[in-house]
Design a protein around this nucleic acid. Structure first.
Lengths: 341, 341
DNA sequence: CCTGGCACTCCGCACCGTCAAGTGCCAGCC
DNA sequence: GGCTGGCACTTGACGGTGCGGAGTGCCAGG
């Protein structure tokens, strides 16, 4: 085995031991636990080289080595073999998710499952409204001047909005409205809905127009221009495990996790369902999460991403397991949402 | 001022100082900061008596005194004057909550508001389904053998459930069903819905019966027998403040907060909207929350409780402020839900 | 019944020496 | 050239020690 190769082996060994023990790892321990076939002294030389390259670092002179973000990055890119899930884990996924009664239920179960599987903080995004299609649009006549618009998507999301009208409307008018809206929007992607909707009032019977204009305004505003993206969070108790323990470190993380928008940036950015994205420490876009890593992936039907999900933990985490768990769960969710519920 | 009276003053002073400083408070400090008109020596005697009664305790010999759960209890019952909110706080409440577009939005804003106001963990329960009334019941014809039941309550909750049918149904049949269900259930309390619903199939046209039976089963099962009570949680980052800092203490709390059922027990138990309930440390029904206190109250329309909300923090918390904040927010929510949205 | 004084207790902190782990470097060896 | 054992050096962790301060309980006197 040549030098380059062995250096990588050493890096892998350092990372694996560090993940297992949470303590800086020294040359002697490495030589014992991994059969690299060379002496501690040689390993020391290799480590010195790795340190020069910025892949590992010492907390202080004469302590063991600790992987740097850059080291983890190399590890994830080149060295981490995807760890297939154990049969027990596969079974856990299946049994955990079956029996969910609706979308809320599916996603809440998912987040718990992920948190349990990876022993980390889990985040799951609701299927993006923009990328869902309209399955049905219901208009409910709550009162003379008050309607409720209920949007049901093909991913099972149900969004509602109350609309106050300037003038009273009759039940038959509402029925007409319902017909027009459904006819125009059914099976349309919400992303495409904007133009369909704006053109609507021009092509309909005059008596419907004022009403239709009001409704389309609401539709546009609440569902298209400012689509409500939601996320579910779970497993925060896992933050108290491990090196993130002392309070100064946990705090900014908890604060960041309270912001919906932050979470969305974390896992909601467009990403393909097939590629797991790993953000390590400083690579993270969000201040306060610079000491954590995020493993995320999109889920969806086929190659089309409907939303994202992922886990968050200390940079010192088991990337291989997390990546495969996240990928597996995303596949399941994709299937469930395709089956329709 | 007689002895009994002064002892209580001393207790109050101990609690106030302890809350402010988070450190055991000694006789000398008390004599200086509060003008009790007696010397430290006298206060020492009083403190010895208070300690005998179990109201305060010393962490160790020759340290200052710390209030016990029992001490806090007495304080809350007898000594804590309700602290009226500052105008700034009132304004914050109003501006925070106005502009909410739907129930989800109202409750999410509420939980953030409470967390911010009290600088503690906040919990808000969705209006109980059982105690809400049906405003509208929509049946959506998704596919030949698949219907979606959408329940809209007078508190703004929208619950949906997909129902698979054994046989295909026509659109007109669905319309009839919708009519029957709405006619029977509109404005009924969900708690009373069970008997109304069970009697339905007997009194309708024969062609509707099988369908109606299926639907009523679902209705009963999902909405009446197992009504989904939901809660929103916020401000967990506040746990990292103060004496709850070291990780061993924070962990069980975070774990307890992850359980929906636990949260429900915490604030969802029937409680009148007018009486603020305070549970101090060991009084808490939930293992893992024995080092925290919970301040909760019901909110609703008039005297009828629709749900609960509250805050959770270390036993060493500002009970007076928390109680008034919780009460004030509950009043607001009650109003908003009564106004209807 | 309150007060000042006093002896006592105990924690927190700083200091210190020892220990073990780990390193870098060097000379020697294959 | 590359690996190895040996060795001197550095440094944090740990346990013991001593001191100062805060706080107490008790007592005698007003």
């Amino acid at each position: 085995m040549n030098l380059e190769e062995r250096k990588l082996q050493v890096l892998r060994a350092v990372i694996e031991d560090y993940i297992a023990t949470e303590e800086p790892v020294g040359s002697k321990a490495l030589a014992e636990r991994h059969h690299l076939g060379v002496s501690p002294a040689t390993i020391r030389n290799d480590m010195a080289l790795l340190e020069e390259e910025g892949l590992i670092a010492q907390p202080h002179t004469s302590a063991g080595r600790v992987p740097t973000d850059k080291g983890y990055r190399l590890f994830v890119d080149k060295l981490a073999a995807l760890k297939p899930l154990s049969p027990a884990e596969r079974k856990a996924i299946a049994s955990f998710l079956e029996g969910a009664v609706d979308l809320d239920d599916v996603l809440h179960r998912t987040v718990r499952l992920l948190a349990q599987l990876t022993r980390q903080v889990a985040v799951v995004q609701y299927p993006s409204l923009a990328r869902s299609a309209v399955r049905h649009l219901e208009v409910v006549h709550l009162a003379a001047t008050r309607l409720m618009l209920v949007l049901i998507t093909d991913t099972g999301r149900v969004e509602q909005r109350v609309v106050e009208l300037p003038v009273p409307v009759t039940e038959t008018l509402v029925a007409d409205l319902r017909g027009v809206l459904n006819g125009a929007l059914r099976d349309q992607k919400l992303a495409d809905a904007a133009e369909v909707v704006t053109g609507l009032p021009d092509n309909t019977a005059p008596e419907l127009r004022p009403l239709l204009t009001t409704m389309t305004t609401v539709l546009l505003e609440t569902l298209v221009e400012r689509p409500e993206e939601r996320v579910v969070l779970g497993g925060t108790a896992n933050l108290t495990r491990g090196a993130l323990d002392f309070p100064g470190t946990i705090r900014p993380v908890l604060e960041a996790l309270e912001e919906q928008v932050t979470l969305l940036r974390l896992i909601g950015e467009v990403q393909s369902p097939s590629r797991v994205l790993v953000r390590i420490g400083e690579e993270n876009p969000i201040e306060g999460l610079r000491s954590t890593s995020v493993v995320s992936v999109g889920y969806g039907r086929g190659d089309q991403a409907l939303g994202g999900l992922g886990v968050l933990g200390p940079t010192r985490m088991d990337y291989a397991s997390s990546m495969s768990a996240v990928a597996a769960v995303a596949r399941y969710i994709g299937q469930i949402l395709s089956a329709g519920s």
